[in-house]
Structures are given as structure tokens and as C-alpha cells.
Write a protein that binds this DNA or RNA. Structure first.
Lengths: 187, 187
DNA sequence: CAGGAGTAGTCATATCATTGACTATGTCCC
DNA sequence: GGGACATAGTCAATGATATGACTACTCCTG
């Protein structure tokens, strides 16, 4: 039930088409909520039918027409109601952790390889987040930005994503190093 | 497709019934893979049908009979194959982050309340993980344990869970503090 | 002795998410 | 001129997850 609220939250930053939203959910928002385009188009249809967003057709000459959506007052109210319903904590859901859980009884080599790879992608994501954070705060330093800006939500969630990936990277590196020193031979 | 591997990984530590597994998935393993009992019983049935685990009936006098499951060689091979298939990275999926993303346009008070609460539950989880880690390593200090034990998988995944909750807590506290200093009035 | 909590497991249903394929058109580059 | 890539969106099918209810027995506590 929270994809809809993620869509509403994303639309707070301006008018977007389903296609644009799909890209947002693929990069910045995927940080804490990922969705494939099909999900988004379906959700947009539902949201519009329920009057939480309103779309307007934009005719384009040299590319397909599109529909841009904005949040209605009812949509804002829905978001406000959402913030008052208790959110239950989630936890990590990672194949990689399942592998590490079982690693003592398996050949560690492929697990180490995956840890190395994941450490790399996590590092890349940290850099991506750093660039996004820099773009969001402009010339200001972080503290000033957070104190003075009137749009800090995206920055704060991005900070959380950065921390998560940083932790991910450090853990992967630590575990890979450990597994290398232990049991160089599979059993 | 990874619940099955999580079940197999959990069964590496000994014989368990569906009911016992449900408790494991509710506390320790929920760390990186949560599942409700219904899912587990269904998965156990499938796994046994496919020969990846084998169950044996245990007749009990003063409580319901149960079936204890162990991983077969085929199950171990399945886990080994699993470690060689590339795992795709996941990200956080939190209602709370959706709320923070939208907080600039909403009354921050309920969001702050939820952040406070989450900081509390995260802190409690950190303590829980600390106790679990201590139990796992016994008298040894962490470094010695990791160097010498032959069952470090659960310890390593638990470490990841601890880090995650610690980050969670710090982020919640930071954001709550920030939102309190800004805009004490809703708009 | 009633009520709650613990053990052990099952059924049905609804919603959510993932996968894969598919239609159009336009631009850019080799 | 062919192929890749970007824009914009849709359909169908399956797989995974969540929700709620239900049986049946025992132990413990007030």
C-alpha cells in the first residue's frame, strides 16, 4: 500500500509523466523504493481514478504525447493521513546475506567473488549519492542547507541511502577479507 | 526464489520443525529475511518434495507431534549452486523514508513522532543483536572468534544487521532533531 | 476452573511485485 | 540506410508476500 505514497511523494517536486517517474524510481527514489514502469502506470491510473492526482495531456510534435500528473489537495491529505499511520520497521532482504549465512558449509570462493563485486557496486552508489547530495544543496554546505532550505526531504532520504551503501561496502570488504584469511580450501 | 535458500541456510545449524523455523525467522534470521509461518510450511513441503530436505516425524506425548527437517546432499548442492548465481543488490524499502521524502509539504509533527519511535525500536534491536553476538562468540573476543570458529556465517550476518539498525537509529535521531529545529509550525 | 500463552500446523484469499513481450515514433551515429 | 538508444506507454501471466481465520492439545497462573 506504500507504492502509492511513494508516487505521491515523488510528484510533490513537480509535474511528471509516467515515463519520467519511472526514471526517478530507477535512480534517486530507488534509494528507498524501487518500482518498474508497469507498476507506476498502473498506480497512476488508480491514483487518478481516486482523485489523488490529476493528469493533463501534453501534445508533442516530435515525440509521443504524454500525460503530466500533479498531486491534488485530496492527494496531499492522503499523504498527511499516511504520516499518522504507524509504519512498521523493515529489515534487509539480501540474497548475499543468505549466502554468507551458509558460507561455512560451502565453497567460499564464489561468495567472496560476489562480496567483492557488491563492494564495488556499493562504492559506486556512494559516489552517485554524493553527487546527488551536492546537486541538491548547491553552493551551500550541508549544515546551512539543512537549516535554511524549504525542501530537505529528498536530501535526508538520500543521506540515509548513502549511509546504507557505505555500510554495505564496508561490511562486504570486511567479510571478503576475513573469508580470504580463513579456509583457503573448500571442504 | 530465495526464501528456499534462506530455509536451507537455517537448517544447516541442525534439525528444526516448521514451528521452530518460524521462530528463527522471526528473530535471528528476520535480520535479513523475514517470513511468516505459512510461507515456511509451504516452502518446507516443496523442498521435501524436491528432495532438498528430508523430514522425520517425531511423536510427542504431551504436545503435538512434529516433523524435523535436515538438509540433504542435494540441498547442499542447491545452496552451492545458489552462491554461484549473481545476486542483485537490493535497497531499503521503508514507509518512514517515504514520509521524510514528503515532509516539507506536510505537518512534521507526526513524522517526528514516528522517527522518535523508530529510533527507539532500532536501539532495542541493536541491543538484541549485541546479545546474540555475545552468545554466538561465547568467551572469545570477536577477532579470535572470527579467526578460529568453524561457524562464522550467522555471526557475520548478525554484524550486518547490527550495523544497519545502528545507522537507522542515528539517522532517525538526526532527522528528528533537525525537523524539531526547523518549522515548529505546520503550514 | 477459566483464561492465556505456548506448541504444531493448515487453509483460503487478496494484493503486490516481477518478468517478458509488444506498439509507435524520433534522433543520433557510423 | 541500419542499428542503437530515448521517449511514452500497455498487456498478460506468474510468482511472492501479506492477512486473517482455524484446529487441537497442554501447561501455567490467578
Amino acid at each position: 500500500m506504500a507504492l502509492r505514497h511513494a508516487v505521491l511523494a515523488a510528484l510533490l517536486d513537480g509535474e511528471y509523466s509516467g515515463y519520467q517517474l519511472a526514471k526517478i524510481f530507477d535512480v534517486s527514489l530507488s534509494n528507498f523504493w524501487y518500482a518498474v514502469p508497469q507498476q507506476l502506470y498502473a498506480e497512476l491510473t488508480r491514483l487518478e481514478r481516486e482523485g489523488l492526482i490529476s493528469g493533463r495531456q501534453v501534445i508533442q510534435r516530435d515525440r509521443p504525447n504524454k500525460r503530466l500528473f500533479t498531486v491534488t489537495d485530496a492527494g496531499l491529505a492522503e499523504l498527511a493521513a499516511f504520516t499518522t499511520t504507524p509504519s512498521k520497521p523493515t529489515s534487509i532482504r539480501e540474497d548475499l546475506l543468505v549466502m554468507v549465512q551458509a558460507v561455512d558449509r560451502l565453497d567460499p570462493a564464489p561468495v567472496i567473488a560476489q562480496l567483492d563485486e557488491r563492494a564495488g557496486t556499493a562504492a559506486a552508489k556512494v559516489e552517485l549519492f554524493d553527487r546527488m547530495l551536492q546537486r541538491l544543496r548547491g553552493d551551500l554546505d550541508e549544515e546551512t542547507f539543512l537549516r535554511t532550505s524549504d525542501r530537505v526531504g529528498p536530501y535526508l532520504t538520500c543521506l540515509r541511502g548513502r549511509r546504507f551503501e557505505q555500510e554495505n561496502r564496508e561490511w562486504c570488504e570486511q567479510v571478503a577479507a576475513l573469508l580470504r584469511t580463513r579456509a583457503p580450501l573448500p571442504r
